[in-house]
Design a protein around this nucleic acid. Sequence first.
DNA 1: ATGGTTGCCAAGCAA
Length: 267
Amino acid sequence: MSFSIATWNINSVRLRMPLVEKFLAEYQPDVLCLQETKCPDDLFPSKAFRKAGYEHIAISGQKGYHGVATVARRPVEVVDRRRFCDIDDCRHLSIHVEAGDREILLHNFYVPAGGDEPDPEINPKFRHKLDFVAEMHDVTAVSGENYSSVLVGDLNIAPLEHDVWSHKQLLNVVSHTPIETTSFEAMREAGGWVDLMRQVVPPTEKLYTWWSYRSRDWVASNRGRRLDHIWSSADLSPRLAGIDIITEARGWDRPSDHVPVIARFDL
DNA sequence: ATGGTTGCCAAGCAA
């Protein structure tokens, strides 16, 4: 059977619910992981999700900032809402979901953006980001005979040279500094995670999931970055049927600055 | 080098 998982930093789920509905109707992923919902749990638009066929909803939200949610067309069981760096931010949610011949442990992450100054000594937000990634080292790709792991989210780091529009010009820009990209890749490899987007698209090819709001014409300038990621345990990688980056969503009315990414599996 | 935009909510802060 086919099974698909989508991830999307929505930048306010309530404001963009019409776009979420459009996306779900058009692409019908089995599971959708959202980040930056900016919505307390009691105000989450559950009704609209149920109406769209996504009756199973796990949320970890707070007022105004951060927040993650995982919605699905089949039952999900919350495994954990982990706190990182001893801060109460809602940046992680993990669930179990049945998919074909196996159970999947699915992590939904919103890694701190890190502020503007890429120096942990003077910028506490950058320090927090580095500490957060360091703490992610013990989030590992657990797998067994009928058990696999997937990790998705807005990880706010573009690790490879062609994950940004200009490697040279972004080397000192938060999201692509060597200290971030090195620890990010080390963390991914230590956890046993496979970068599924790069399994499909060779690292020599440009690949973006985010385009800044601060540009007159995001299409013409095309100064994107790959900040959103889908990783899996090694056993799932041969079952990947494809990756879809829904770039057109950046051009929808009042869009998020991130676009959805979908991984399709044959299970 | 700087400023560019958006969303939170009603002033700046975070991204």
